[in-house]
């Protein structure tokens, strides 16, 4: 197992180094000069040149790349070109919204998915299965940003149960903040949960066809006991794969829903930084997201091995 872990860890580091090179290169070829964007189109050539020098953007790319990586290794992310504040401050502020939102969405979506997916699979082809799959398909079909608008109209404007947008800040009280995140989390979790419910049902049905399930049933085990004791564990591999991907996506992929609710999360921060050509912010945030995805996949790989010992034996 330790060889397996060491190999995975080395590839994790290699992936991150590769990702840092790609991100830096993409920022290099991105059209638009950060100094020109900050100063505006009417700026004189000399003022643009002076700001370029001040930002350190006149140095050779290789030197700037190693400076960036060297800074990262010492925990120094640099200062935002557009806002003149440390990037770590911007990221910290955004994470205080994005991480709780992602966790809340994930809790909601996994709960919805496991309940619907398992119940539907256990009642395959019955009326409840058909109804639940119809509902889950509706859930997948609804664009989350459209659902977000409908939720605002009904629950914020009509019923006034939740704020229509914005984030008060954690110093304003825990429940006030959670209240502000509930509608965006529901908008995100409906689609994610519906997708996960379908994968769960499909995967459970696949495992139900296995010989060991037939053996368990032949031994006299009830369908419910077979589901809990034998099917669930084996059916979780594709479910965990998709869960891992969904969580990583929630961290950056919520940009549209964040826009609808005016939440200054990580997605909005990157979008603004790209538009402002605040390359230092984009580089750091995107690399951080890359690290989160790679680490999530690393954990998923380990879970694979824990859940299915045949895979572990094959891998090591």
């Amino acid at each position: 197992m330790s060889v397996f872990l060491a190999k995975r860890f080395i590839t994790l580091l290699a992936t991150l180094i590769g990702a840092s090179i790609v991100i830096f290169t993409v920022m290099e070829i991105l059209p638009g000069d950060p100094a020109l964007v900050i100063l505006g189109v009417d700026a004189t050539e000399s003022s643009v040149a002076a700001l370029t020098k001040e930002l350190g953007l006149d140095r050779p790319p290789l030197e700037r790349y190693f400076d960036w990586i060297g800074g990262l290794l010492q925990g120094e992310l640099g200062n935002s070109y557009a806002y003149k504040v440390p990037v770590s401050e911007l990221v910290q502020g955004a994470l205080q919204i994005t991480v709780p939102l992602a966790i809340l969405s994930m809790i909601l979506s996994v709960t919805i998915a496991l309940v619907i997916g398992l119940y539907a699979a256990a009642n395959h082809n019955k009326a409840s299965d058909v109804t639940l799959m119809g509902v889950s398909q509706l859930g997948i079909s609804v664009p989350n940003f459209w659902l977000a608008v409908l939720l605002i109209l009904y629950f914020a404007v009509n019923l006034k149960w939740f704020p229509p947008g914005g984030f008060p800040g954690w110093d304003q009280g825990f429940w006030k903040c959670i209240n502000a995140l509930i509608l965006p989390a529901v908008a995100l979790a409906t689609v994610q949960g519906a997708i996960l419910a379908r994968i769960t049902r499909s995967s459970v049905l696949e495992v139900f066809r296995e010989d060991f399930v037939r053996t368990a049933r032949a031994k006299g085990l009830s369908q419910r006991a077979t589901l809990w004791l034998h099917v669930l564990r084996n059916a979780m591999i594709p479910v965990i794969t998709v869960m891992g991907l969904q969580f990583a996506n929630l961290l950056a992929g919520t940009v549209v829903v964040e826009n609808v609710f005016y939440l200054p999360g990580l997605g909005s921060t990157v979008l603004k930084a790209i538009n402002n050509r605040d390359t230092i912010v984009v580089e750091n945030v995107v690399l951080m997201l890359a690290a989160m995805v790679v680490i999530t996949n690393f954990v998923v790989d380990i879970l694979y091995a824990v859940i299915d010992p045949r895979l572990k034996a094959h891998d090591i």
């Binding site: 992929g253 549209v256 990157v270 790209i274 995107v286 995805v293 996949n297």
Partner: peptide, 15 residues
């Protein structure tokens, strides 16, 4: 594959 996943759909599309 991990490498491509490092850039979520919307983010990579935006870039």
């Amino acid at each position: 594959s991990d490498f491509s996943f490092a850039f979520p759909a919307i983010l990579s599309a935006i870039m």
